[in-house]
Design a protein around this nucleic acid. Sequence first.
DNA 1: CCTTTATGGAACAGACGTGTTCCGCTATAG
DNA 2: CTATAGCGGAACACGTCTGTTCCATAAAGG
Lengths: 190, 190
Amino acid sequence: MRVDTQESGTRTRTRQAIIDAAIEVLGQNATATLGEIAAAADVGRTTLHRYFAERSDLLKALSAEGVTRLNRAADNARLDEGTGADALRRLCHEYFELGSLLSLIFSEPQLIDDADWSERGGCDPQLSALVERGHRDGTIDPELPATWVQSVLWSQLYAGWSYLADTHISRYEALRLVVRTLSGAIAPKS
Amino acid sequence: MRVDTQESGTRTRTRQAIIDAAIEVLGQNATATLGEIAAAADVGRTTLHRYFAERSDLLKALSAEGVTRLNRAADNARLDEGTGADALRRLCHEYFELGSLLSLIFSEPQLIDDADWSERGGCDPQLSALVERGHRDGTIDPELPATWVQSVLWSQLYAGWSYLADTHISRYEALRLVVRTLSGAIAPKS
DNA sequence: CCTTTATGGAACAGACGTGTTCCGCTATAG
DNA sequence: CTATAGCGGAACACGTCTGTTCCATAAAGG
């Protein structure tokens, strides 16, 4: 995918600054202006257009960046180890670190859906396998389909991230609440 | 609040049609055009402006309508009866009936926040009292603050409503999943 | 029959975001 | 010192949404 001609160090830094700023700003307000994104990245709007000719080009770059970060988080969570519920809790921890990207993906799902990630029926295969393992090992409520578990995971992550932004709670406490309620939500009922 | 001069029957019907259409359309896409809303209401854009001079006027009316529907749902749920968890489940049932209004409130929270509803610290008093009752009667995890329970309730409702729209599941099944995971999420941990 | 009420459509001006061009500035490498 | 890379700002055309005005039409009531 990488083109033959390498990009200068300055340029890659600027490009990355724009992408990072876009994730922050668009995570707060999906309809933000290119001018606002440029200002957040501390660059002129002209410069932004130099790197991403059209808005859609920036969104494509954001999609790629999102997929990269999601995959890295999933790798760190070692989804194939331990019980299904434990793996899901580890994934929850890793995903929570994504920060503003959570808001962006949650409020603009088609940004990622259109990418090659999660091509199968709106649920990525790794998570699906994880949930089925949890069904077998008795740590995830067998009445909950994998797609619904995925929905619950994302909605809880988004709620936790928003809660962190709205209240005076610590990041650690917010994550603890998310994991606690998520664990209860997916636990088999007695 | 009601003005002295009563509105004609036709006008109240048209006004209500516009409000209903706005909830539907803005629930799907919060940046929808006034033209799209007018089309959905089967009304000319001129007519829409006759009832709501500016976009903000329409939003104010939506806020009032939202508060009305929320209060009616809360009344139907009889929040002061039974255990805290049971009351919360009843509220979940009632709120789920709000349909597209769920999406609208969830994606545009400031629409309702700015109204007189839920003036206290982002959590309405009725729900707060309900959760505290659940803490005392042992049906709601005492480690979960009322504000977080409210966040979980709303995020689950939104997730369920989106799930209903995205998959081929029945309305009944979607609500069942929501109530099941919500019940587990708030249940005291053994 | 004629007036009131409610409406739709055409047309317009203003505001705003977008995409582009052009020019000037600064820093760094050669 | 000079040439190049990278950047910012001003300006422009274009499209879209908004808010408004004006006029024509259809239905209902007196």
